[in-house]
């Protein structure tokens, strides 16, 4: 085969492979969008983060505005210390609240931001004043059972009483 034809095929092959890699990186793997220079860091302290993971999305009004970049346990307050990187394009008022939410019943967990009304915006290194912890399924079920148990307490007691009787 002619050398130039061969070179062209190989060149096309390499380009195709690199395009595939780029598609995987940007379209599938969601690299980019939030590179270091264009983000700012904010923190939030939560009583319980549930199943939140690093890289989980930070959304506001359902739109991804940033990602969770670090999760640590604070030894003094005994709470979870979560670091988020938000896109420089999305600025939020200082009194914005952060909540850990779940997408769907069994979906992954993310942080939802609810914008406040303050004039000043959050800056790099600021902390959310208002946070809401994750809903842990066991606790929810526990609460539901407890409230049900207290509501139907009488019936239960009689039933138990009945059992004790010979």
């Amino acid at each position: 085969m002619e050398r130039t034809t061969l070179d062209m095929w190989v060149g096309a092959f390499m380009v195709g492979g690199l395009i595939a890699l780029l598609i995987l990186a940007f379209k599938v793997g969601n690299l980019g969008g939030y590179d270091g220079s264009k983000t700012y860091r904010v923190y939030g302290e939560f009583d319980n983060i549930g199943g939140l993971k690093i890289k989980a999305p930070v959304k506001s009004a359902g739109v991804v505005v940033g990602r969770v970049s670090g999760i640590q346990f604070d030894n003094k307050t005994f709470r979870a210390h979560v670091e988020m990187r938000l896109s420089q394009n999305n600025l939020f008022p200082k009194d914005t609240s952060a909540a850990i939410l779940t997408s769907g019943l069994l979906g992954e967990q993310y942080i939802g931001l609810e914008a406040g009304g303050d004039e000043a915006n959050l800056k790099n290194g600021d902390k959310f004043k208002l946070t809401q912890s994750a809903m842990v399924l066991e606790q929810l079920i526990g609460q539901a059972l407890f409230s049900k148990a207290s509501g139907e307490g009488g019936d239960k007691n009689t039933a138990q009483g009945g059992n004790k009787k010979p």
């Binding site: 379209k27 793997g29 969601n30 991804v64 992954e108």
Partner: peptide
């Protein structure tokens, strides 16, 4: 379809490891 994919697939963890 796309947003779930983007959220689940991590560049370093999944794509780099795959390569």
């Amino acid at each position: 379809f796309w947003s779930q994919m983007e959220a689940a697939v991590d560049f370093r963890q999944d794509i780099v490891n795959g390569v």
